[in-house]
Amino acid sequence: MCDTPSPARRNRPVASGANPDTPHAGFTAAQPAGGGTTPQGGPRLSGWPRQLTWSDFTDIQNRPSGESEDATIAMAMRPGSLRFLEEGGQHRLGEVEFQMVLNEGGTWVVTSAKTAELLRHEQGHYDIVGLCYRDMVNEIRALRERSRNRLVRAIRRVMSAHDRRADSLTRDYDSEQQTNHGRNSARQQAWSRQIESCRRSGARMTVPD
Score class of each variant (00 low, 15 high):
Met1Phe: 09
Asp3Leu: 15
Thr4Asn: 12
Pro5Asp: 10
Ser6Tyr: 13
Arg10Met: 10
Asn11Val: 08
Arg12Tyr: 05
Ala15Met: 10
Ser16Phe: 13
Pro20Leu: 01
Pro20Met: 02
Asp21Tyr: 13
Pro23Trp: 13
Pro23Leu: 13
His24Pro: 01
Gln31Pro: 00
Gln31Asp: 07
Ala33Thr: 12
Ala33Leu: 14
Ala33Lys: 06
Gly36Tyr: 13
Thr37Lys: 07
Thr38Trp: 03
Thr38His: 08
Gln40Leu: 12
Gly42Met: 00
Gly42Trp: 01
Gly42Arg: 00
Arg44Met: 12
Gly47Ile: 00
Trp48Ser: 06
Trp48Asp: 03
Trp48Gln: 05
Gln51Lys: 11
Gln51Asp: 08
Asp56Gly: 02
Asp56Pro: 04
Asp56Lys: 03
Phe57Tyr: 10
Thr58Asp: 03
Asp59Val: 07
Gln61Leu: 13
Gly66Tyr: 06
Gly66Trp: 02
Glu69Ile: 14
Glu69Asn: 13
Thr72Val: 11
Ile73Glu: 08
Ile73Lys: 09
Ala74His: 00
Ala74Asp: 01
Met75Gly: 03
Met75Trp: 13
Ala76Phe: 01
Ala76Ile: 00
Ala76Gly: 10
Met77Tyr: 03
Arg78Trp: 09
Leu82Val: 11
Leu82Lys: 06
Glu86Met: 12
Gly88Phe: 07
Arg92His: 07
Arg92Tyr: 02
Leu93Phe: 12
Gly94Val: 08
Val96Leu: 05
Phe98Trp: 07
Phe98Thr: 00
Val101Tyr: 06
Leu102Ser: 01
Leu102Gln: 01
Glu104Arg: 00
Gly105His: 00
Gly105Ile: 00
Gly106Thr: 00
Val109Gly: 03
Val110Asn: 11
Thr111Arg: 12
Ala113Val: 00
Ala113Phe: 05
Ala113Asp: 04
Thr115Asp: 05
Ala116Met: 02
Glu117Pro: 01
Glu117Phe: 02
Glu117Cys: 02
Gln123Arg: 11
Gly124Lys: 03
His125Gly: 04
His125Val: 03
Asp127Phe: 08
Gly130His: 04
Leu131Ala: 03
Cys132Pro: 04
Asp135Phe: 02
Met136Tyr: 05
Asn138Val: 08
Glu139Gln: 15
Ile140Trp: 05
Ala142Ile: 08
Ala142Leu: 15
Glu145Cys: 15
Arg146Thr: 12
Ser147Met: 04
Ser147Tyr: 07
Arg148Ala: 08
Arg150Glu: 11
Val152Cys: 10
Val152Thr: 07
Val152Trp: 04
Ala154Pro: 04
Ala154Asp: 07
Ala154Thr: 03
Val158Trp: 02
Met159Phe: 01
Asp163Lys: 13
Asp163Asn: 14
Asp163Ala: 11
Arg164Leu: 05
Arg164Thr: 03
Arg165Trp: 02
Thr170Tyr: 09
Thr170Ala: 10
Asp172Lys: 05
Ser175Gln: 06
Ser175Arg: 07
Gln177Asn: 11
Asn180Ile: 03
Asn180His: 14
His181Ala: 03
His181Cys: 02
Arg183His: 12
Arg183Phe: 10
Ser185Ala: 13
Ala186Met: 11
Arg187Leu: 02
Trp191Met: 06
Ser192Cys: 13
Ser192Thr: 15
Ile195Pro: 05
Ile195Phe: 10
Ile195Met: 10
Ala203His: 15
Ala203Gln: 15
Met205His: 10
Val207Thr: 14
Val207Ser: 09
